[in-house]
């Protein structure tokens, strides 16, 4: 038995909320008029337009559609809303329909009976197919490395980085997941950082920037109807309070500080490799070596090339000034050659 309540929240917002009250299966429901005495337990709240308010609601078993004033069909992800033509002039307050809550588990923001948020877990799953990204914290800097998936020879090899981005003067990040989603978040992060700089004339502390982004990500796990961002970030940054810092954040809006961490495909094995190899107090150069070694083991092909990976470091120059540096193809190849991981073809090319 379907039960629906139709109410309009405020005139100014012009929204009718359609709420399914209690039902286990998906189905469809109908609100019908015709001055009949309301049957069933479905009602339309009376503070909507008088013409719509006069609709009575009912529970029906068959589909006498021509008799109906308002037809609602509810499926797992869509709602069909049909109004009797003669009532359309009165229905101009109806501009959109939203589900507030109490919806099937297909919606992002609802806990499943087992207490899980499936969409968030699906997002994590999506990320675990994306290229690997790792970050390692050294005593004098941080290294970020990411696997770039070359999909086609015909694809224009853009010079700009695809998985590593500069957030502001003292922070960069690596992306694992959907690049399109990441672009939105990165733009948000850059704006946040610049807004902080304008307000306080100081660069934003790393953790605060991470938290701003995570607040945004979290919002998409709680507020209705939207998909969470399918992106995990690894952040590398420096601030005067806590010096070099490495963070990881995922679609749920959780974040944490790490000494070495990874995201994306083969994340688990990368993580255990890092755990094995990580040395406290290693320097940036050692960290770079560790990064390529871990990448070479987690990536599908054992031989790497500058086309397949991206590399970036944050460090301090001799005067103590913090720099960040996205590596050029030549620098990456040189590093790979040093660790004997370069692809034969690429070394022959030279």
């Amino acid at each position: 038995m379907m039960k629906f309540g139709v109410s309009r929240k405020t005139i100014s917002r012009k929204i009718i909320y359609v709420r399914r009250r209690q039902s286990k299966a998906d189905g469809w429901g109908v609100c019908a008029g015709k001055n009949k005495t309301p049957r069933g337990r479905v009602s339309i709240k009376s503070n909507i337009h008088p013409a719509l308010a006069s609709l009575a609601t009912t529970t029906i078993e068959s589909e006498p559609q021509q008799e109906l004033d308002l037809l609602l069909t509810v499926g797992p992800s869509r709602l069909i809303f049909r109004l009797r033509p003669s009532l359309i002039p009165f229905a101009r307050h109806v501009s959109s329909i939203r589900f507030p809550s109490e919806l099937p588990r297909h919606y992002t923001t609802t806990f499943s009976p087992e207490g899980r948020l499936y969409q968030v877990e699906y997002a994590l799953e999506a990320i675990s197919h994306a290229g690997t990204a790792i970050g390692i914290l050294a005593k004098d800097g941080i290294v970020l490395a990411a696997e770039r998936k070359v999909t086609s020879k015909l694809l224009e090899q853009d010079t700009s980085a695809e998985k590593l981005y500069i957030l502001n003067d003292n922070m960069i990040c690596a992306v694992a997941g959907m690049t399109a989603d990441a672009n939105i978040l990165i733009n948000f992060a850059r704006q946040s950082a610049q807004r902080y700089l304008r307000t306080y004339n100081e660069d934003i502390p790393c953790e605060q920037l991470v938290r701003r982004l995570c607040d945004l990500k979290q919002g998409y796990t709680q507020h209705g109807g939207l998909r969470p961002f399918g992106v995990t970030f690894i952040y590398a940054g420096w601030d005067p309070q806590r010096q070099f810092q490495l963070y990881l954040s995922n679609p749920s809006g959780n974040y944490g500080g790490w000494k070495a961490t990874s995201a994306g495909a083969n994340n688990a094995s990368a993580q255990s490799l890092l755990k094995q190899d990580y040395k406290e107090n290693c320097n940036l150069k050692e960290a770079c070596g560790m990064a390529v070694k871990v990448l070479s083991k987690t990536m599908d092909s054992t031989k790497l090339s500058s086309q397949k990976i991206e590399f970036a470091t944050v460090g301090q120059d001799k005067s103590g000034k913090v720099y960040h540096h996205l590596w050029s193809a030549e620098e990456i190849d040189a590093l790979l050659a040093e660790h004997d991981l370069a692809k034969e073809t690429s070394s022959e090319d030279k």
Binding site: S160, I166, N168, R190, Q191, Q194, R195, R198
Partner: peptide, 16 residues
């Protein structure tokens, strides 16, 4: 000057 720092920094990050 702060306004232009904001705008130019955003330009630089966007355009690389």
């Amino acid at each position: 000057s702060d306004l232009f720092r904001y705008k130019v920094n955003m330009y630089r990050l966007r355009e690389e």
